[in-house]
Design a protein around this nucleic acid. Structure first.
Lengths: 162, 162
DNA sequence: AACGCGCATGTAATATCATAACGTTCCGGG
DNA sequence: CCCGGAACGTTATGATATTACATGCGCGTT
């Protein structure tokens, strides 16, 4: 289920974790009537290899190594598609992308970025989103999209430092 | 006082608003024992001209027009200084910078970005920050820095659209 | 006064991230 | 079969950001 938002920071059965996300992605695309083509699928697999955010050019390099095109738009298009379908997220702070760990769930993701090991996790953001909506509403602002990105220390690195 | 966080979205006495921020900035720098040099001061003035976020190259252009250097580091250094001193903020979503409206106050800013008129306001973010800390702490993550950026419609544009 | 030091500034060059514009291919519906 | 749209590929360019190095200036020490 990959229900544990902190899995990114633990040892876990990552192969299973990635496989689950991938099959969920297939279902979601089928459902939405959009095509998870080979480049797109491969881009998602690449992002799923690690719980880190990868730059578009990192992804591009791997795609090119697999025989796909080697020009930036190849990567950006695949990544944009994934983001549109909610299968990946863009982490602006890092100019990078990461696979969504709970695709399909309606979610207002909060990203936790470890400054030491670069792992990225999605924390449940409902409470944060509520607080944000409240703050915005109090001055008459209507939020359509929000991004919350926090940099800090993950449990493992925290322990290692202490 | 510039105490109203939504001033950015209203008509207000902007000259006074900017002047206040500038004199606060002077006090803060004196206090911190750092120098608000001419480029830095001018960069801040430029950001204060509008409640919008400006790209580094926009600022650079204006600085150059005023006789300062014309290479990117000139702008980036001034802007980095302002951000370090809490006199300005970086809006990653826009790859841009905006003057802080309440410099000196300890604050966890939440940025509200109007998608129609591009105004940027800082909402009080204490509640959001608490929610974020709670979410992070529940999985053992220690937040050191966070950015919350929301895109949506400001009160004026909301009215205009309806 | 002369020196040495740190900081601020300036420049050139380059790295990194992202998009525009256009042609070709593939595939399903009419 | 043929058309039309979506996906993919390429070239070229634009936008954002940093590295590295040289110069000048203030200031405390000698």
């Amino acid at each position: 289920m990959t229900a544990d938002p902190s899995a990114a920071f633990h040892d876990h059965d990552h192969a299973a974790c990635a496989a689950t996300a991938l099959s969920r992605a297939e279902a979601i695309c089928a459902d939405a009537g959009v095509r998870l083509t080979p480049v797109r699928r491969r881009a998602l697999e690449i992002l799923l290899e690690e719980h880190r955010a990868l730059g578009a050019y990192d992804v591009l390099e791997k795609l090119a190594a697999d025989g796909f095109g080697k020009q930036p738009p190849v990567a950006y298009r695949a990544l944009d598609f994934l983001v549109e379908q909610g299968l990946a997220h863009r982490i602006r702070r890092l100019n990078a992308f990461t696979a969504c760990t709970t695709p399909g769930d309606a979610h207002a993701p909060v990203f936790l970025i470890c400054s030491t090991c670069d792992a990225v996790a999605e924390a449940p953001g409902a409470a944060v989103r509520d607080a944000l909506d409240g703050a915005a509403e109090s001055i008459g602002f209507a939020v359509t999209r929000a991004s919350v990105e926090a940099v800090g220390l993950c449990p493992a690195c925290r322990e290692a430092t202490s």
